[in-house]
């Protein structure tokens, strides 16, 4: 049997922390719905999702989804703009680690002013 490598163990920890965050009963079901909508929109557009974080004081009222897209497929990111709860989209180079990729941070919430960064 293969012993899980450090990378696999790190992955398990990452996935378990996502389970914790997504499983919180405080998390608004509307936000969950919009996040999965965004993920579905991104499917086939070359965006790979790496993590998701709820945010908000006391009760999470927003979600940040973090992903990456290759520079070649960057223009497809515009498809995300139709999401009605999208409040902010930050895109920046990842740098030396993956020079051909851009970091995508998409923020949703129910009540903040829209901003594209």
């Amino acid at each position: 049997m293969k012993t899980p490598s450090t990378n696999e163990k790190e992955n398990t920890e990452l996935y378990e922390s996502i389970v914790e965050r997504l499983g919180s009963t405080d998390l608004d079901s509307g936000l969950l719905k919009e996040s999965s909508k965004l993920i579905a929109q991104a499917y086939g557009n070359g965006i790979k999702w790496d993590d998701v974080f709820p945010y908000g004081i006391k009760r999470p009222d927003g979600i940040t989804a973090r992903g990456r897209v290759s520079i070649d497929e960057f223009t497809k990111v515009k498809d995300l703009l139709s999401n009605r709860l999208l409040r902010r989209l930050d895109i920046f180079p990842i740098g030396i680690r993956w020079p051909d990729y851009l970091d995508v941070h998409a923020h949703f919430s129910k009540g903040r002013a829209p901003r594209i960064g």
Partner: peptide, 8 residues
């Protein structure tokens, strides 16, 4: 939840 998790 499952959809987001499985995608990541």
């Amino acid at each position: 939840r499952v959809f987001i998790l499985a995608t990541i």
